[in-house]
Computed example of a mutant assay.
Amino acid sequence: MTKCNHWSETKYIKDIITNPLIEAGDYSYYSGYYSSGSFEDGCVRYLWGDEVSRQLFNPIEQMGWHLDKLLIGNYVCIASGVTILMGGNHNHQMDSISVYPFLETIADTYEPRGDTIIKSDAWLGMNAMIMPGITIGEGAIVAAGSVVTRDVEPYTVVGGNPAKPIKKRFNEKEIEQLLSMRWYDWERPLIERALPIITQGSVSDLYDFYQQEVLATK
């Protein structure tokens, strides 16, 4: 089952994806109970590579397109109603007389936007929309209902339409330390030992743990 049966149920994304153009890290989840579709057919939109689209056509072989990917890090939280727009809607040419994607010319109009990247420990709030080719930085938070049209820096809270920075979650020194530690890439047993700090403690406490338990063992 790829759909959630209750609002309290979540699905680990790496366990439910079938599209080869989607990659997801460990423990990243989708809480999709209130959405009408599954992760690949509701949250992620216009991305060739699911079972049905693979049976219908192959734009890589037939039209030579280089398709964008969706890359999701570890411990990412994606709420119900989030929309991640991908590559299937790039054929509307704003610099031509008509924006209509005529079948006769559609093979030549596609332009990649670049991979959409949601880095580790990011949180996408309910009904947020991520436009194609966006990078959401580590530890960033996208407020509910936001429309993200630009990259989001690590550990930054953004909101609105279009989404704008609201605040930094930590000061610059702490962000630098977090990005150097990359706790979300540690082995799970080490993370479990550090959970009391990760879930409540200060960045400096976690950095002390990192120096003692990670750097000192290298």
Rank of each mutant, 00 (worst) to 15 (best):
N5L: 14
S8Y: 15
T10L: 09
K11S: 13
K14A: 12
K14L: 10
I17K: 10
T18Y: 15
L21M: 09
I22W: 01
E23L: 14
S31P: 05
S31E: 15
S38A: 07
F39E: 04
E40T: 06
D41P: 00
D41H: 10
V44R: 07
R45H: 15
Y46I: 04
E51D: 14
M63I: 03
W65H: 12
W65P: 06
W65F: 12
D68T: 01
L71Y: 13
I72E: 05
G73D: 00
Y75L: 06
Y75M: 07
C77V: 11
I78P: 04
I78C: 07
V82P: 03
L85V: 13
H92R: 10
S96E: 15
Y100P: 13
Y100G: 12
P101N: 10
F102K: 06
E104I: 02
T105K: 05
T109Q: 06
R113M: 15
G114S: 00
G114E: 00
L124N: 06
N127P: 04
A128S: 13
M129K: 06
P132E: 08
I136H: 02
A140G: 04
A143N: 05
G145K: 03
V148K: 13
V157K: 01
P162Q: 15
A163D: 01
P165H: 10
P165E: 06
I166D: 15
K167P: 09
K167N: 09
K168C: 06
K168L: 04
R169Y: 08
F170C: 01
F170T: 00
K173A: 11
E176T: 11
Q177I: 03
L178V: 02
R182H: 11
W183T: 07
D185W: 05
P189K: 04
L190A: 11
I191F: 07
R193T: 14
R193S: 14
A194R: 05
L195R: 13
L195F: 09
P196Y: 04
G201L: 04
S204W: 00
S204I: 04
Y207H: 09
D208F: 00
Q212N: 14
A216I: 03
